[in-house]
Amino acid sequence: MSEEIVIVTGGSRGIGASVCRKLAANGRKVLVNFAQNAGAADKLVGEIRAAGGSAVAIQGDVGKEADVLNLFSEADRLGTLTGLVNNAGVVDLSRRVDEMSLERLTRMFSINVFGSFLCAREAVRRMSTRHGGKGGTIVNLGSAASKLGSPNQYVDYAAAKGAIDTMTVGLALEVAQEGIRVNAVRPGIIDTEIHASGGAPDRVAELQSRLPMKRAGSAEEVADAIVWLMSDLSSYTTGAILDVSGGRAILP
């Protein structure tokens, strides 16, 4: 029998890495996708294997169609795809819209939106019963920013995540009769490296006193929600967007 495979894009760090660890601990074979940091991906794969799990690291930029096609070809070689976590994403330095370049916008939407669509397309082609697949699950990573708008910071990022919200609902309805469930998790302020990559390494410390729970969330807390949506425990859940934001509704 072909081994079942789950792809986690952007899986070498932060929320993605926590998802990989938890899925592997639950007996899933994980394909850890990474864009650049091979060292982090290889270290994670080593940790998973040392704990008795199964994982493989595959490089690829989800914003490039050729890389996405190669990623899914590698999955085909390793087993049967039954799950996708569309986790890969980027932010940028805080800017107003009237300060944003086309280069920035292109990068933001290529990775955060186009990459998720391309990966979902390839996953559906393999998992849908319409295409001869055995079904599966897709979980997209949204953000509370899609509701908040992120003014004076990342309106482009918020808009990209708004597209993910809409994609989740539409795709879920499109493949509901084809054995595929599609859901999303919408994190709030989570203590990961993504803030530093956006030029705000102290963002969590600066905001946590103004958050409803007076603390940021952890990658593990978000991963637990994703793993639940990937499991049979959520077998009647599709088209859902689950907020994991500690009650954060508006920017103070």
Rank of each mutant, 00 (worst) to 15 (best):
F72H: 00
S73A: 09
T80C: 07
L233V: 11
K147W: 09
P212F: 06
A219Y: 09
V204Y: 03
L211Q: 01
D67H: 01
T168L: 08
D61E: 12
G115T: 01
S235K: 12
K29R: 14
E47Q: 13
G11V: 12
R181P: 02
V32R: 04
S209K: 11
S54P: 09
S12F: 08
K29C: 14
R107A: 12
G149Q: 02
R181M: 06
R203T: 01
T192M: 15
Q59V: 06
L84Q: 02
T80L: 09
V32P: 00
V227S: 02
R28G: 10
V182I: 12
T80K: 12
D156V: 14
D76W: 12
D232Q: 10
R210I: 07
L118S: 04
G247Q: 05
E220L: 13
A172I: 03
Q153T: 13
G60D: 06
V32W: 05
L84C: 00
K214G: 03
V185C: 09
H131C: 13
A123Y: 00
S128W: 15
G27Q: 12
P151S: 02
N70T: 07
T168C: 08
L81S: 01
V204M: 00
G199I: 15
R215M: 10
S18V: 08
T166H: 13
D42G: 10
A172G: 06
A145S: 12
V182E: 00
V90I: 14
N87I: 06
C20A: 12
V139K: 00
C119H: 03
L44H: 04
E47F: 10
F117K: 02
W228R: 05
V19I: 14
L44S: 03
I7S: 03
M1V: 14
N37A: 10
V113N: 00
S150C: 13
G53V: 07
V169R: 14
R248F: 07
V227F: 11
G246C: 11
R13V: 13
A55V: 06
I189A: 05
G136T: 01
A38D: 11
D76R: 03
N70Y: 11
I15P: 07
H131P: 08
K147T: 08
R125C: 02
S146L: 08
K29Y: 11
P212C: 04
L207Q: 02
R77V: 06
I15M: 12
G27F: 14
V204T: 02
S94D: 11
R28H: 15
T9S: 12
L93G: 11
L171M: 03
L71A: 01
I15A: 13
A159Y: 14
S110E: 09
V182G: 04
K29A: 12
D76Q: 07
M230C: 09
N112M: 06
E220T: 13
G246M: 13
N33P: 05
A50Y: 07
G14P: 07
R21S: 03
N37M: 07
V222C: 04
V85G: 03
N183Q: 13
S197L: 15
R95I: 06
G133S: 04
G83R: 01
A159F: 15
S218V: 05
E65W: 04
G16P: 09
K147L: 10
Q36T: 09
S143L: 08
F117S: 01
L207V: 05
Q59C: 14
I138N: 02
C119F: 00
D243P: 05
D76E: 12
I138C: 05
M230H: 04
L105A: 06
S197F: 14
S116A: 15
E74L: 06
V90T: 11
S128R: 04
